[in-house]
Design a protein around this nucleic acid. Structure first.
Lengths: 186, 186
DNA sequence: AAGGCTTGTGCGCTATAGCGCACACTGTTA
DNA sequence: TAACAGTGTGCGCTATAGCGCACAAGCCTT
């Protein structure tokens, strides 16, 4: 059991969870048998080059992104300045300020979101192919995506496929959390 | 014999020829047996993930560069990434921090850019369909897009199609300008 | 020539990747 | 309760990845 084997096992599990595929579905998409997919995901098998190639094709990802850990991109940077002026929210738990409204031709949306201490925002799965980028402006934030919680501090960023159920939570007891939310539509 | 197998065979041969290693030398460096190395280089074997990992370690190359040079599909994306200053740009007036590195499957990139007072950054047109979102974090910024300059103050956002020539300029005489730059690839 | 030395390849063996299939386990429906 | 469709896992089998070792072909010496 080598290290890379376990690492890749988690990676494959994430890829399949993102697409909400069953092993059967993944088997038909990739051409790799269901049993073998299960063994690889459990870290019990070391797939060959041809199998890896089929996986990359089936999951429609490049070879580099297939093997290297997900580029979730947590970046610690204390130098990020909190400078955006605050706008009065209408909701006590969640305040959303639309910085750039949705535009069909630009298929993007930029939101400035603030969650009060202890606040929780659960979001259903968006359309397939929707991507969300999160950048914490102040406070701390927990983001649920890819079947797990990601803890983010001020200045840290996270990015995920939003065609799955996801959530935002402010674990702090006293400090509000503010973050930017870029929504990219396909 | 799959196609990827032959491609990787040539790739391995090139790597070893560049280092002027014998099979024996390569075997000791990588930990993969000499016989197996020969078979892989002849395209007669499909190495497993653990073997590929040992090869990457032994030849001291990343996993992407181990296989990617023979792959045509992803090089375009890399070329796009290379057009954006990643760590330190040529002109010292600009400092770019990559918050979220480019990922093919998420086709997005999040940069934190700082321009010194009086600094100017002109960018050529990106590929068709590329969108950029700008959010000024501190200072003031002028963005040229759609054939005109847009003056942005702290907290203001701007968005435009980047498949045209565009530019960023800090008009201030003393204060640096910092802004977030979300690049969305089609 | 005959000996060393290094190159890459062929051989037999064991470990395991990969397959089809059947099974156990869940939650839903009659 | 039983039937059912969908989930992931375990089983036996074959193909082959991967190993150590021996061999053949080339290139220097002496």
């Amino acid at each position: 059991m080598s290290d890379i084997q376990q690492q890749f096992a988690a990676r494959l599990k994430t890829l399949r969870a993102q697409r909400r595929w069953s092993l059967d579905r993944a088997a038909t998409e990739t051409g790799v048998s269901k049993a073998m997919l299960g063994q690889i995901e459990r870290g019990e098998s070391s797939p060959t080059l041809t199998t890896l190639w089929r996986l990359a094709k089936g999951y429609e990802v490049g070879f580099s992104t297939l093997i290297e850990p997900v580029e979730t991109g947590l970046r610690k940077d204390e130098a990020v300045v909190d400078s955006v002026p605050r706008v009065t929210p209408e909701d006590s738990a969640l305040a959303v300020k639309t910085m750039l409204p949705f535009a069909a031709e630009l298929h993007t949306e930029l939101l400035d979101v603030e969650i009060e201490p202890g606040g929780l925002r659960e979001s259903d799965a968006h359309r397939a192919g929707v991507i969300e980028c999160i950048l914490v402006q102040s406070g701390a934030l927990s983001v649920f995506s890819d079947d797990q919680w990601h803890r983010l501090r001020t200045g840290e960023a996270h990015r995920f496929r939003a065609d799955q159920s996801h959530a935002y939570r402010n674990d702090s007891a006293d400090k509000p959390a503010r973050f930017l939310n870029v929504i990219v539509y396909p």
